[in-house]
Amino acid sequence: MKFKIDRFILAIIAVIIFAYNVPQYGIEDSGFPISTISSIGFFLIFFFYGLKLSPQQIKSGLYNWKLHVLVQLSTFLFFPLLILMCYPFVQTQEQHSFWLALLFMAALPSTVSSSVVMVSVARGNVPAAIFNASISGIIGIVITPLWVGLFLEKSGTEFDYTSIYINLIIGIILPVILGLSLQRYGHALALKYSKQLTLFDKSVILLVIYKSFAESFYNDIFSSVKLLDFFILFLIVIAIFFTVFYCVGFIATKLKFSTEDKITAQFCGTKKSLVHGTIFYKILFNNSAASSLILLPLMIFHASQIFIISIIASKFAKRESENLK
């Protein structure tokens, strides 16, 4: 069985290499309006998301409530609790920065496109995947700042919830509502050019990643990150993924979920959104000392989840094909 490396992962690596060699365009004093461009880009991402969103599929998914509760608990409770268990072992400021980055990753909502695509490949419950992936982003607007803000306040960093929620409403809710209100005019077009819009989404994410790493390289932030630390962080991220994946699978089995629902629970309940992560990063960690390293665990997790879930989805699909013969 052959597995291709996701092109977006390769693009992220290329952008990081470019940021290392040409960091000057990503800093605030460069004169290049990278922050303004990325803010407009994120507004358009969620506007187009509102155009594509199907209210009918959301309504039809409401009935499978046990599945939805499990996915959302996994996304916003299981993940953060795993990281909180490690908090007593945090001793130094460097360890706290990495721990906070892991908590940020753990508190994020699930992905939309990759969750639905992988559930479809594995022949799971696709409508339920669409429902959970969609509702996760809305829940995350409330839950993610609460998790992160609790520990930013403990570290002495100012955290204005009113300002945070206003920015999230303007940056996410408002464009989604605008997109939903214009569906009669643009829904068909948004679906027709879905691939192009996905390419646009990824381009905006790459821009934010460039800015984050360019600032870090320019200020020599990563000089403190040793190769051993990176390797340990990678192992922690992988361990978190598999712990949640098998716990969700165990609970789904105990609840006597169908195979399709179990696939959906495991696939949607173990994903973390790089799209939401980058926009939350811009809003939650602006001017924070920990912000330079905050995206590192998320990007490791993003690459890992795509690779691992792709393999698992292919195995599920193969098994289902054999059962149908």
Rank of each mutant, 00 (worst) to 15 (best):
L197M: 09
L197F: 07
G277A: 13
M299A: 05
N286P: 00
V237S: 04
V275M: 11
I205T: 08
T278G: 01
I236P: 00
V244Y: 03
S288K: 15
V225L: 15
K254S: 10
V275Y: 08
L206R: 10
V244P: 00
D229T: 14
L255T: 06
K202S: 08
V204N: 01
F250D: 13
S223K: 13
L284G: 12
S212N: 13
S292P: 07
T259C: 09
Y210G: 01
L207F: 03
K195V: 10
V275R: 07
L227V: 14
A252G: 09
G277L: 06
F257K: 04
F257D: 02
T243K: 06
D229A: 15
D261C: 03
Q266H: 01
H276Q: 14
S194I: 00
A239Y: 00
S224P: 00
I283H: 10
F213A: 05
A265D: 03
V244D: 03
K256G: 03
S292E: 15
L284R: 07
K254W: 05
F241C: 06
L235S: 12
L199Y: 10
A289Q: 09
V244H: 02
A289V: 10
L293Y: 15
S292Y: 12
N219A: 05
L298H: 10
K211I: 01
K195I: 08
S224G: 05
S194W: 05
T253Y: 04
F213S: 12
Y210V: 02
V208Q: 11
N286T: 15
V237W: 01
I263A: 13
Y210D: 07
L295Q: 08
K262E: 06
I251A: 07
K254T: 00
F231N: 06
K202E: 12
T253S: 13
Q196P: 00
K282W: 02
S223D: 12
Q196D: 06
V237Q: 09
I209V: 11
K262A: 11
K254E: 10
F234P: 00
D229R: 12
I283K: 11
G249K: 07
K195W: 03
K272V: 03
F200H: 04
F257Y: 03
I283E: 09
V248C: 10
A290R: 13
T243Y: 02
S212K: 06
Q196L: 09
Y218G: 01
F241L: 15
I221M: 05
Q266P: 04
D201W: 01
D261V: 04
T278A: 15
F231Q: 10
E260R: 13
F222Q: 11
I251G: 11
